[in-house]
Design a protein around this nucleic acid. Sequence first.
DNA 1: ACTAATTCCTATTAATTCTATAGAAATTAT
DNA 2: ATAATTTCTATAGAATTAATAGGAATTAGT
Lengths: 145, 145
Amino acid sequence: MLSKKAKYALQALTFLAQHADQDSTGIAEIAEQEKIPRKFLETILLELKNQGILISKRGKGGGYALRQDAEAISIGQVIRVIDGPLALTPCASRTAFKPCQECKKPDSCSIRLLMVKVRDATAEILDHTTLRHIIDSQSALLYMI
Amino acid sequence: MLSKKAKYALQALTFLAQHADQDSTGIAEIAEQEKIPRKFLETILLELKNQGILISKRGKGGGYALRQDAEAISIGQVIRVIDGPLALTPCASRTAFKPCQECKKPDSCSIRLLMVKVRDATAEILDHTTLRHIIDSQSALLYMI
DNA sequence: ACTAATTCCTATTAATTCTATAGAAATTAT
DNA sequence: ATAATTTCTATAGAATTAATAGGAATTAGT
């Protein structure tokens, strides 16, 4: 399951993608529009900034904006940054592989191979879907079919 | 991520599938061989029994066995029983759909449609992989490719 | 009938993670 | 200066997960 944090992050990024014309949008506005707890959103946006997905402007009139165009930010990237690996088990992650304790042969563990297969299918979708797909519902819907 | 409980369940079921010739296998043996905390495993096996995946024999010489053949038990079924829906969000589940609070139109939410797509890809794999595939590593490996 | 071995049941504790908030420092536009 | 904002770090609160406890019920063998 996705955490609330990740869901909030996707909502906020979607909002920012939709307001990419403005050069920055404040936390307060995003929190209010998307109904996300204000202080919680603060920490989330800060994390997205520290991870290079957002840029910020401090002080009066400050706020956040996407660092790159919406088509350059994949949903997979966002979820990994907030919730960690996409894989169902650490031993099935390609970005953060970690073998199970006491697992002698990860290479021949059938459960692991299955989990890798699921991870690959998930990553294939999430790494090829971008914020652009999300905000442009028409192309998104076409893409989905 | 899969819970430890689900991982233990898969280990135990794999073990039972490999010992399907015996008419029952005790908790103690499974716990020892698979290095699963004994008391925790008790509750897991009981749950799998209550969900119709295992049968048990009580009293001296008792134990557990698969209710059906290994090829009739899918990994998706096991994970759902222990961890709940495969989907990353409740609104993307087909077996336990639940809309997000305040979501006006789940039908046109692009994030939801994306999550449904991921769910379907995951379920396609997990519902078509059985304990038989897992224990027969050769056919499993072929299947994986 | 007795004993030992086992599953069954329910409650509880312990540990971990997730969610949210607090409060003040640093920064910036006006 | 002032007001509005992000930044930072800590921590509290809530929920979930992981594990254990202890005894009841059942069964095989003697």
